[in-house]
């Protein structure tokens, strides 16, 4: 029997900060075309888990592999993942377009100008492309931050509450982009507090509680998850 080709695989991942356990022996596998929703209370470890999966936080123990190889052993492998953290990661004195151009150039995309325009158009931000980020609304910044993260269209997307603070129209635009990515084989892991996000993306739920995953149910909405937990 062939071993599944996991896009991301975390094994016995633990993270301790100042003696406090943030993650405790977390195991997680994410295949291409699969979508996982991380749920849990504030402080459950969702953001830390996403940052460990993205290899920008070093775990205290355990391993993270991208496509079967230890994560980010070479800097060029960072092109395999996109992480949209809770922060926007945008330079407020640069325009929306300049922020995307900077990201595209740092990643080394072959045609940064076209790619930046394309992302602005997809996110409905073309009309504010020359506006400094500090003058954009919270929702626009959120969308732009999402665009900055996925500008290189990598196979693995890690999204920390990607729909937080968005209106319906903006939310739908990002949902559409995520669905399209999943349809074309992308591996997506996102954190959320909303049942609706899970249902609309038909995501597998992974519940985090005090740093431990305690339920992972394929193609389960959180309603299903809640019923299961109640029973």
């Amino acid at each position: 029997m062939n071993k599944p080709n996991f896009a991301i695989e975390a094994h016995a991942l633990s993270k301790h900060v100042d003696g406090q356990a943030i993650l405790v022996r977390v195991d997680l596998q994410l295949e291409c075309g699969q979508c996982i929703a991380l749920m849990g209370d504030n402080g459950a470890g969702k953001t830390t888990l996403l940052k460990c999966l993205a290899a920008i936080k070093k775990p205290s123990s355990g391993t993270v592999c991208w496509f079967g190889r230890p994560a980010a052993t070479e800097v060029s492998e960072r092109r395999l993942i996109a992480l949209k953290p809770h922060e926007d990661c945008l330079y407020t004195h640069l325009t929306a377009y300049e922020n995307l151009m900077f990201a595209a150039r740092m990643i080394g995309l072959p045609n940064p100008a076209n790619r930046s325009q394309d992302i602005l158009w997809k996110l409905g931000l073309s009309r504010v492309s020359d506006t400094p980020v500090r003058q954009l609304s919270k929702g626009m910044r959120q969308r732009l931050g999402f665009g900055r993260a996925v500008i290189h269209d990598p196979p693995i997307w890690l999204l920390d509450e990607p729909f937080a603070g968005l209106d319906d129209s903006s939310r739908n635009q990002i949902l559409q982009i995520i669905r399209e990515k999943r349809r074309t084989g992308g591996a997506i892991c996102f954190s959320t507090h909303q049942d609706l996000d899970i249902e609309e993306l038909d995501a597998q739920v992974v519940q985090l509680h005090q740093g431990t995953t305690f339920l992972s149910q394929p193609n389960a909405s959180s309603a299903f998850f809640n019923r299961k937990r109640a029973s």
């Binding site: 993942i81 992480l83 926007d88 945008l90 330079y91 990201a103 993260a149």
Partner: peptide, 15 residues
């Protein structure tokens, strides 16, 4: 370090 830009930098393929 403002607005998480240093986190953003750490995600790019640069040493």
């Amino acid at each position: 370090d403002q607005d998480g830009c240093s986190v953003g930098l750490s995600l790019y393929p640069l040493s």
